[in-house]
Design a protein around this nucleic acid. Structure first.
Length: 202
DNA sequence: CTCTCGATGCACT
DNA sequence: GTGCATCGAGAGA
């Protein structure tokens, strides 16, 4: 686990970045303790052309980060209880981000269990709302530069190998339902319980 | 295992 | 006032 992923990593097509984030390490520092998880599931959200995206319309107080610099965190609050963590990623489009939906706990598992008030390892961060709770991420972490080595960033783990990727439609969206922009590590036990038809990429 | 449904609070229209 | 890029409990099989 060394340097954070560079800005240029995120300055590419949102879907490509989403797939490339699988297998990377989500790094979190809380007080003196560190939490590490391997990203196992993501979704790509584009800009105006993607009706399921928060950036489908003009910038607002909430979504403005998606229109800004790539490599910045976009954290929003939803369903009255949950936060979702994204990272801004795009090249041609004026807006875009990747939703980080699940991760495999690697380090700081006991603190994650405490944050989640749950014991089951497979249930600690296998969903976007669970992940932010396990990693203690809220609106205070909105707008953080994830390309800098701070309290929250993403890096390539020392033993990184490009994982086998499966895809499906995105979960919980009410429009653009047919876009196959959810990606997850094939056969991982650390992905959300979405019962959608999947397909392994060639 | 599967499915249904209520909780919850805020951004946006 | 409406609608969430969700979660977990409960019921049934």
């Amino acid at each position: 686990m060394l340097q954070p992923l560079a800005r240029s990593f995120y300055n590419r097509d949102t879907v490509s970045v989403a797939k490339d984030l699988l297998g990377r390490a989500l790094m979190r520092r809380i007080g003196g303790r560190s939490l590490v998880g391997i990203i196992t599931e993501v979704e790509a959200y584009k800009g105006a052309e993607d009706s399921a995206s928060h950036a489908h319309r003009a910038p607002t107080k909430r979504n403005k980060v998606m229109f800004g610099k790539v490599g910045i965190s976009y954290v929003y609050f939803t369903y009255g209880n949950h936060y979702c963590l994204n990272v801004v990623a795009k090249n041609d489009s004026p807006a875009g981000a990747v939703l980080i939906r699940a991760a495999e706990p690697i380090r700081g598992v006991s603190l994650m269990r405490k944050n989640r008030a749950r014991d089951n390892l497979y249930e600690l961060s296998n969903g976007p709302g669970k992940l932010t709770k396990a990693f203690r991420i809220s609106s205070e972490e909105n707008g953080i530069d994830l390309t800098r080595k701070g309290d929250l960033y993403i890096s390539t783990p020392t033993q990184f190998r490009r994982p086998q990727i499966s895809t499906s439609v995105r979960i919980g969206v009410s429009s653009a339902k047919n876009k196959p922009w959810r990606f997850f590590i094939s056969q991982s036990r650390f992905i959300s319980k979405a019962k959608r038809v999947e397909q392994t990429l060639p």
